[in-house]
């Protein structure tokens, strides 16, 4: 068994597409209309075009808001992405106006930081332990 797709709920798919591609640097993989306004919208890392897809899923279900608000309030991220250098990525994203709820923090072998994806979620970036 392999994890080939995971998802985050996003407030606005068009806005999410811009943030995840233009700001974070992922590339769009699938964009298929679903119903009147929703899309099956996935992105992948340019380093791994055949790698795990991230589905940017419409946050239409009424339970989503309660769930996400509670997690965001406590600073809990809903997904984690690997980067080579957390501090360099922090500087790059911070320069683009991305808001961090946790600045880069070295904790033993791992460095992490947490930012707001502007679509309702917190995302953690982390270095892979060597």
């Amino acid at each position: 068994m392999k994890i080939h797709l995971t998802s985050v709920f996003v407030d606005d798919q068009a806005k999410a597409e811009r943030f995840y591609t233009e700001i974070l640097g992922f590339v769009k993989k699938y964009d298929v209309p679903l119903g009147e306004k929703d899309r099956w919208l996935t992105v992948v890392s340019p380093d791994e075009p055949e790698g795990t897809e991230l589905l940017l899923e419409p946050a239409g279900h009424p339970a989503v808001k309660t769930y996400r608000d509670a997690l965001v309030m406590d600073g809990i991220p809903l997904a984690q992405f690997a980067v080579d250098d957390v501090r360099a990525e922090y500087d790059r994203l911070h320069g683009l106006g991305v808001h961090f709820t946790q600045e880069p923090l070295e904790m033993g072998p791992v460095t992490t930081a947490v930012f707001d994806d502007t679509c309702g979620n917190l995302i953690q970036i982390a270095t892979q332990p060597q």
Binding site: G75, T101, Q102, L105, M107, V110, V114
Partner: peptide, 24 residues
């Protein structure tokens, strides 16, 4: 060390820096 932390950050510091196994 740094004032102004989320619950998540405090939990991370306790588990990763201090090896404390404590729930959120």
């Amino acid at each position: 060390e740094k004032s102004g932390q989320t619950l998540f950050e405090i939990c991370g510091r306790l588990s990763m820096k201090h090896q404390l196994t404590i729930s959120r």
